[in-house]
């Protein structure tokens, strides 16, 4: 029998080829759909995270702005009568200078007025718009200056300081005074946290490195990270969410503005503050700042405004 195709079998052969091709096409398109579906799911999950973060930041920002506005209003109102009390108690003290007991009471009132005035000053400092002067510097310089400012505090508290150095210079363009002040506030909090704990070892590690980190806009970018580790009790989860809120403090004294101010300063530099508990105990506060090349530029004076920090896990250190 001849193997040549008859006209009918030729049509059938072509038909089957088409069929096979169609089945392959179904198969291929299904595979394609599997991929686009997976990509879409991943993208939606990411979008959900981003939207949640944006909403959360918006809420925090509004809360902080409202808190700052209210506090500034109260502080302004309190300041005048406080000034009067201070003046009158001074006059009274002069009148009773020859009577020890009333003079002692006057002194106590004057001290209380000074304390209150200091709190009002902190509040106004926090709530008032400020400017910063950008200048080239390095992370190492900032650390050295901050440690120098805290030298006596650290010595009195018996805290061992460990610094890591020797690497390449980490260039920044920041308001040196403000970032040093931020580091001082963080170090002070760490020292106070360690003083409150029973830990036999009081150790403060301060170091800096260049790292790629996710910024407030969700994008990964290069950052100079300066971190301060302590051997304190760490941060309770319930404290973590509130620790950057102005006036939130777990201590009996203090205004609760220390970390709020740190956060505001770092945020104004286009950076982020992150807080976490360390595996071996204690807390880590990290100041993530843009490196010199990408540091927030613009006018030499830029307003500082309240911000929303990133608390990852946390110790009562406000």
């Amino acid at each position: 029998m001849s193997t040549a195709l008859t006209p009918t079998s030729a049509r059938q052969k072509v038909g089957l080829e088409e069929l096979r091709q169609l089945m392959r096409s179904v198969n291929d398109t299904t595979q394609q759909l599997e991929h686009t579906h997976a990509a879409l799911s991943e993208q939606v999950a990411r979008l959900q995270d981003e939207l949640a973060e944006a909403n959360s930041q918006l809420r925090r920002s509004r809360t902080l702005a409202a808190l700052g506005e209210m506090a500034a209003g109260i502080a302004h109102e309190v300041r005048n009568p406080l000034g009067s009390i201070g003046l009158y108690v001074q006059m009274l003290a002069e009148d009773v200078a020859d009577r020890p007991e009333p003079a002692r009471l006057c002194q106590r009132i004057a001290r209380a007025v000074e304390d209150l005035d200091a709190i009002v000053r902190d509040v106004l400092l926090f709530a008032t718009e400020k400017t910063f002067q950008l200048q080239p510097t390095t992370a190492e310089t900032l650390i050295d200056k901050a440690l120098e400012s805290c030298r006596s505090l650290l010595a009195e508290a018996g805290v061992d300081v460990i610094t890591a150095g020797g690497g390449p210079a980490l260039d920044l363009e920041v308001d040196q005074g403000l970032i040093v002040q931020s580091l001082v506030n963080v170090i002070r909090n760490a020292v106070q946290a360690m003083a409150e704990s029973d830990a036999a070892r009081r150790e403060l590690r301060i170091a800096a490195a260049r790292q790629r980190r996710r910024g407030p806009d969700g994008r990964r970018a290069e950052r100079i990270v300066i971190w301060v580790d302590d051997t304190g009790p760490g941060i309770a989860p319930e404290v973590l969410k509130r620790m950057f809120n102005p006036f939130f403090t777990t201590r009996r004294t203090g205004t609760g503005l220390g970390l709020a101010i740190v956060n505001r300063i770092v945020d104004a530099h286009g950076g982020q503050v992150t807080v976490s508990n360390r595996d071996g105990g204690g807390a880590r506060v990290a100041l993530c700042l843009p490196p010199r090349a990408t540091a927030r530029s613009g006018t030499p004076t830029t307003p500082l405004t309240p911000s929303s920090p990133t608390a990852q896990a946390g110790s009562p250190q406000t």
Partner: peptide, 10 residues
């Protein structure tokens, strides 16, 4: 202010 952003505790 001279001591910008220094709170009462520093």
């Amino acid at each position: 202010v001279s001591n910008r952003f220094a709170d009462r505790k520093g």
